[in-house]
């Protein structure tokens, strides 16, 4: 089984901070030649899979997302400078999260670090979950390997936006509450409230 099949249903295996080395099934020490070779193998397998399967809307979105991930991984990792920039930003956002969690556990004021982290996280997700992915679709080699066209780009921007939001939420779920006190939700009570609202009653 090729690497992308292994990870396609577990996009949180990298804690939400997309790991492009893992996307290509490579280590951080890999050489540009290995990146090129592995990208070609995985993209070919993906294109063949797309050709074989009946395309539903859900599958189209999943394939599109996988294509974006592979293209972006290739675009970023084949270039040394680009790779370093990506690795540094990823490390920074992971370190900020750890720092915030640590300070929060000590119950000290975390407002500043929280803001820094949130900004860094949004920046990371915007850059590596959208901009670079769409940019990769315009790269000559990526176009050739993935048969990417403007129609793909149009759909991909919607898919990526949704995916980026999902990742952000998933990350948020493990973080402490900051702007509100930690809620304790009773879902039976919630179901009752929903029922009352639908009846048109006062909550």
């Amino acid at each position: 089984m090729v690497a992308w099949l292994k990870v396609e249903h577990d996009y949180m295996s990298d804690e939400g901070y997309i790991d492009y080395f893992a996307v290509l099934g490579l280590t951080a020490e890999c050489k540009p030649g290995e990146v090129r070779k592995q990208y070609k193998v995985l993209m070919k397998a993906l294109v063949l899979k797309i050709a074989r399967e009946e395309i539903t809307e859900a599958r189209r979105n999943a394939f599109l997302l996988e294509m974006c991930r592979l293209n972006a991984a290739y675009l970023i990792l084949r270039d040394t400078e680009e790779r370093e920039r990506y690795t540094a930003q990823r490390d920074e956002v992971i370190a900020l999260e750890a720092q915030w969690q640590e300070l929060n556990a000590k119950q000290v004021d975390t407002e500043e670090i929280r803001r820094d982290y949130d900004g860094a996280l949004k920046q990371f997700l915007s850059t590596y979950m959208e901009e670079r992915m769409l940019e990769a679709g315009r790269d000559k080699e990526c176009i050739e390997a993935s048969k990417w066209d403007p129609m793909h780009e149009r759909h991909a921007s919607t898919v990526l936006r949704k995916y980026r939001q999902q990742l952000y939420h998933k990350i948020q779920e493990r973080l402490p509450y900051a702007e509100i006190t930690t809620p304790s939700i009773d879902w039976n009570e919630r179901a009752q409230v929903v029922s009352t609202i639908l009846e048109g009653g006062v909550v």
Binding site: E179, I180, I197, V203
Partner: peptide, 29 residues
Amino acid sequence: AHVKTQLETPGAMQLPWEPLLMLADNAVA
């Protein structure tokens, strides 16, 4: 008590979750 502390202390606010939840339910209704 939480509200009082928030209003007395300078700096970032932390909203109490129970009123926020009730507010959301009322907004839906």
